[in-house]
């Protein structure tokens, strides 16, 4: 209760603000339509209205307010329009349909998951290499850190075109971008995690005459788990962004990124917003699943 009530209040305020924002955002379009339909608009003529502020128009034409929430192609769709579109394109459509968001979501999700698996796998391997090899630590680690400050996403269009020109298409190019984005957070987090056992613990293993492999499996790997999960959660969000952005520059026909792009080409704002919310729900679900696994694992290991 301590959290739920404030969160719900904040959400209600956001929705209310959203509805309020729809009025000035959409009023001009609504008035133009109303005038064409023969309604009396103040002032008449789209030309005169162009220079007037949106708020002045709202005050002069208060009859048009409900219509701002029902427009066909609004500048800002009202929440219920987005919800309706989401419902229509997920539950009401067959999932094999090209208009189904479940279908598009799956296209993006499959690339995300493949890329995430590759990226984390390689990231963990590199982290192990860095922790156990002084040379790799000194020569590779600085680059891994620097690469986090670089907008790697700028590489996305090129990766796709280059892979296309050597005959690789479909899910792989997007997965490569996803993998690339999730790779570095995992490396950095995992190196920190594998180094987290303190000298006392490492000494203890030495007194047990543990081999390096035993030290890895029984001490370093278990103690890296909290760090691993933190970076996995960052990594999967980054992977999803990578898969979406990977769909932008090629004019992909399927996927959430393709829905965003098609919506922006044809001015289908409701479609953009519903694709955006679908992406948000997907991201939130993925992170939530990882959090649940994290809690389970850490509890089992006695760390949480």
């Amino acid at each position: 209760m301590r959290v739920i009530v404030p969160v719900l209040t904040v959400l209600a305020v956001i929705v209310a603000l959203w509805y309020a924002a729809c009025i000035p955002m959409n009023i001009k379009g609504v008035l133009t339509e109303a005038e064409r339909a023969g309604a009396e608009v103040n002032p008449p003529g789209a030309k005169d209205r162009r220079d007037l502020g949106a708020f002045g128009l709202v005050l002069g034409n208060s009859f048009a307010i409900p219509a701002t929430w029902e427009q066909d192609r609004p500048r800002l769709p009202a929440p219920h329009q987005v919800a309706e579109e989401l419902w229509n394109t997920t539950v009401m459509k067959k999932i094999t349909s090209k208009r189904s968001l479940v279908y598009h979501g799956w296209v993006t999700l499959s690339a995300t998951l493949l890329g995430f698996a590759i990226g984390t796998g390689l990231g963990i391997l590199l982290a192990v290499g860095i922790v156990y090899s002084r040379v790799m630590d000194m020569s590779v680690m600085p680059w891994a850190i620097v690469s986090q400050t670089i907008p790697i996403i700028a590489l996305a269009p090129m990766i796709i075109v280059v892979l296309y020109s050597i005959g690789v298409q479909g899910i792989i190019p997007k997965a490569v971008i996803s993998a690339y984005l999730s790779f570095f957070p995992v490396v950095v987090g995992m190196v920190k995690g594998l180094r987290s056992p303190d000298a006392m613990q490492l000494d203890l293993l030495r007194t047990y005459y543990a081999s390096p492999a035993q030290g890895f499996w029984k001490l370093r790997l278990p103690s890296s788990m909290p760090y691993l999960f933190t970076s996995l959660k960052i990594g999967i969000a980054a992977s999803l962004v990578g898969a979406i952005v990977g769909e932008l520059p090629t004019g992909a026909v399927a996927g959430l990124g393709a829905r965003l792009l098609a919506g922006s080409y044809y001015g289908q704002t409701v479609q953009i917003w519903s694709a955006l919310f679908a992406a948000a729900i997907l991201a939130a679900t993925l992170v939530a699943i990882l959090s649940v696994i994290e809690q389970r694992v850490l509890k089992r290991m006695g760390m949480a």
Binding site: V245, L276, A279, A284
Partner: peptide, 14 residues
């Protein structure tokens, strides 16, 4: 945690 980059088409439109 959300892919906020997706707001880009909307904001470009506005």
């Amino acid at each position: 945690a959300l892919p906020i980059v997706g707001t880009a088409p909307i904001l470009v439109m506005w």
